[in-house]
Nucleic acid binder design. Structure first.
Lengths: 223, 223
DNA sequence: GTCTATAGTCAGATAGAC
DNA sequence: GTCTATCTGACTATAGAC
């Protein structure tokens, strides 16, 4: 089914560039050099096509996340896994997604960003199914490494971390535009490094604040 | 011009809920109880309407940000402003936007999220005009407080911080859905507190890592 | 499996009466 | 300023020949 794959590739690219609502089946079939009717033949509907596009990438990403976490836990033995190792297991697989597809891999990360804002019912169900295990495994690992943190904080912190990740992915090559030219596009490994470093600081923040009273922290207004 | 304001309010709500591409002028005029032709009469086009919606909120937000930063710098005198005070000046005004409008203020934050993913030419120009001063002022303040950080890092960190902020805003009341029920909606002050705390940890992170060699940080793999 | 043709709907924009 | 009516085009989806 060559047409099917070409449709998936074209849809991935266009959904990433223009969003779901902003992309027409005409544009997809044109880019895929397929007939307008092909989408409905192969996928049944535009929404099903989106789900197929997403599932094709998300399933391997989450597999890879769990593999990395498994490996890190095995390496740590009974000790807790270092926080930045956990965060790298969460973040890095997203940037590796589609690396085998050459130029194609650049589109999916940005699509993830769109999915964050466009709430499409089938996609939300897909998320529920695909992310619940990943989510609980990572929170468990973080709770072991950061026993002083309330579990609810860890959930929020993961949200924050994924939020940073998603917006970096969304921005993509427009990063210079968003920062009036002060940031330039960087290789994925560098972005992973930056994100992991910043998030690690966020997760450890409370420890640092408690143990370093002389630090430049304004404590005059806590809620 | 009562109709004009009703159009702005309705557009703000619907753009926030469905995005720009996903919202029709028919839906906007219906909600505003105005005629379909009213949008083009008052604003000229759908895109101009969006710009008016955005400008109405962004201008006061950025004013407030600069006011808070001015106040913090005045209070600090010659000393650098505490990092978390700078971050609060950056984050808090967004949550205050539209507070005077009662229930209406809940929509704009989510719209900001959409604008992050939907790249609309006029909006990007508006950003360029409205954000350049804010951006440079905040980077200057942060550079003074964190002299060891390369300036390019500070730009990235601000991007990360705004990214967290935006995704929290986008998620809005769907936060429970995205975290399989482990996070629940919280009052704005609490969100500001969480965001500022996490971001502060991220900004100070490098200092902490350098000065606390015994911390739970995996240094086996730096890029 | 792939195509043409088209149904049926909705979009943004505008002309012109009032 | 507001309305009705309508233009023009694009959209998803489907029916049916090949």
């Amino acid at each position: 089914m060559d047409t099917r794959d070409q449709l998936l590739d074209a849809a991935e690219q266009l959904f990433a560039e223009r969003g779901y609502a902003g992309t027409s089946l005409r544009a997809i079939t044109h880019l895929a050099q397929a007939n307008l009717a092909a989408v409905n033949y192969h996928f049944g509907s535009k929404e099903n096509l989106l789900c197929s596009v997403v599932r094709r990438r998300v399933v391997p990403i989450n597999q890879r996340r769990l593999e990395q976490l498994d490996a890190a836990e095995a390496a740590a033995g009974p000790a807790p896994v270092p926080v930045n190792r956990i965060l790298r297991a969460l973040i890095e697989p997203v940037f590796e997604a589609g690396n085998g597809d050459g130029a194609l891999g650049i589109y999916f990360p940005r699509l993830i960003g769109w999915l964050y804002s466009e709430s499409i019912t089938q996609i939300e169900e897909l998320y529920e199914a695909e992310f619940s295990e990943v989510f609980s495994r990572f929170v468990d690992a973080l709770a072991k490494s950061l026993p002083k943190h309330p579990r609810s904080d860890l959930y929020w912190f993961i949200q924050f971390t994924l939020g940073m990740l998603v917006t970096v992915l969304m921005t993509g090559d427009r990063i210079g535009l968003c920062t009036t030219g002060h940031c330039t596009q960087e290789p994925p490994e560098m972005l992973v490094h930056r994100l992991v470093g910043f998030a690690e600081g966020g997760f450890l923040g409370r420890d640092r604040a408690n143990t370093a009273p002389g630090s430049r922290t304004d404590t005059t207004r806590k809620i």
